[in-house]
Simulated scan of single mutants.
Amino acid sequence: MNYTNILSETENGITTLTINRPSKLNALNRETIQELHDALAVAENSSKTKVIIITGSGEKAFVAGADISEFADFSVGEGEKLAAKGQELLFDFVANLSKPVIAAINGFALGGGLELAMAAHFRIASENAKMGLPEVSLGVIPGYGGTQRLPQLVGKGRAMEMIMTAGMIDASQALQYGLVNHVTSLEELLEFTEKIAGKIMKNSSVAIASAISAINANYEDGVNGFETEIKNFGESFGTEDFKEGTQAFLQKRKADFPGK
Rank of each mutant, 00 (worst) to 15 (best):
A211T: 14
I169K: 04
P151V: 05
K195V: 13
I212K: 10
A125G: 06
E188T: 11
T184V: 06
G178T: 03
F192L: 10
V206S: 11
S172G: 11
E187F: 06
S126D: 02
E194V: 06
T193C: 07
E135I: 00
R158E: 15
E161L: 13
L150Y: 04
V136M: 07
M162D: 03
F192W: 12
I215M: 10
E191T: 13
N128G: 02
Y144V: 06
F192E: 12
A129H: 05
L179E: 06
V180P: 05
A129V: 00
Q148T: 06
A214V: 12
P142E: 03
G139R: 03
Q148A: 08
L153P: 02
A171G: 11
A197M: 05
V154T: 08
G157V: 11
M131C: 03
G146H: 01
G145N: 03
Y144C: 00
R158N: 15
K199G: 14
N181D: 15
S172A: 14
I163R: 01
Q176F: 14
A207I: 12
N128P: 06
G143T: 08
M131F: 05
L175Q: 12
N216P: 04
Q173R: 15
T193E: 09
S213N: 13
A166P: 01
L153K: 05
G132F: 02
L189A: 09
M160D: 15
M162T: 01
G145V: 04
A174Q: 04
G146E: 04
S185R: 07
A211G: 14
I124G: 01
E161T: 14
A217Q: 04
Y144H: 03
V154Q: 01
M160G: 10
N203E: 14
L190A: 00
K202S: 13
R158T: 14
N128T: 09
T147S: 03
I215Q: 12
S205F: 07
I212S: 08
I169V: 14
A166D: 05
K202E: 15
